[in-house]
């Protein structure tokens, strides 16, 4: 059982850090350097992509969770596999197995009142999506290692299997695909999930937060 506050708090810190880091780097670029009066004129620079993605397949194994305010905890694990048509666009198939269980509040409600939530616990998540890389970044760590990453925009459409129900689902969000040596990739997706359940009173939308942390490999990439 994982308290969602333990996830959302670091997540919020991560988002805050990223925002500040991007803002700081932009501010640094605008701030004139101190010291010499005669600075060489700013000049663009080129760099080879550490791990080109175009024309390559990949596969990631990761963990996820659907975080919704519906009395269920739904952690899971699964597989993402995809192909990049270009450095910007790729398609992805997603298949995740979820182990949903009632949260502490739901459990107490069931034990004390005998009520169970109207929503069905999700058991699996399947989707087909696109990933769009809208930039390239790199971070110097420990003054000797570089983490190369692609900030991405993600969209998936598919289904969620919730007990005997098949629920249409869409999810969108941002992701950070990092590149390591030997073709290894680690990604962190932060998506918002929306699915529609058909209940007695009609189709009811439900939203959730779906983080994914995955590690994978893309052939012929990353080796230097």
């Amino acid at each position: 059982m994982v308290d969602r506050r333990l996830i959302t708090a670091p997540l919020a810190a991560l988002i805050l850090w990223l925002t500040l880091a991007i803002g700081a780097s932009t501010a640094a670029a605008d701030t004139p350097a101190n010291g010499e009066d005669e600075e060489p004129a700013p000049r663009a620079a080129l760099q080879e992509r550490f791990a080109p993605k175009e024309g390559r397949f990949y596969a990631h194994i990761g963990g996820t969770a659907i975080i919704r305010d519906d009395f269920y905890h739904s952690p899971g694990y699964g597989l993402d596999a995809g192909y990049y048509f270009s450095e910007t666009w790729g398609v992805e198939l997603r298949a995740y197995n979820l182990h949903s269980r009632l949260a502490h509040a739901g459990e107490r409600l069931r034990e004390e009142q005998g009520f169970v939530p109207d929503l069905r616990a999700p058991d699996a998540l399947f989707g087909l999506g696109i990933r769009g890389s809208w930039g390239y970044g790199k971070v110097l760590t420990m003054e000797r290692f570089v983490i190369h990453f692609d900030p991405q925009w993600i969209f998936h459409g598919g289904i969620t299997l919730a007990e005997e129900r098949v629920v249409p689902t869409v999810s969108t969000g941002i992701g950070f695909l990092t590149h390591w040596q030997h073709g290894i990739q680690i990604k962190l997706d932060l998506q918002m999930n929306l699915h529609f359940e058909n209940r007695s009173r009609g189709f009811i939308p439900a939203t959730g937060f779906v983080p994914v942390l995955a590690v994978g490999w893309s052939p012929m990439g990353g080796d230097k």
């Binding site: 000049r43 080129l46 760099q47 080879e48 175009e54």
Partner: peptide, 23 residues
């Protein structure tokens, strides 16, 4: 080349994996 990363400005610190772009 489109496969290359184009950094618009070179910051005061120079990355060794970068080189000046055509101007």
């Amino acid at each position: 080349d489109d496969d290359l990363i184009h950094w618009p400005h070179v910051e005061p610190e120079a990355w060794p994996d970068e080189w000046p772009a055509p101007a």
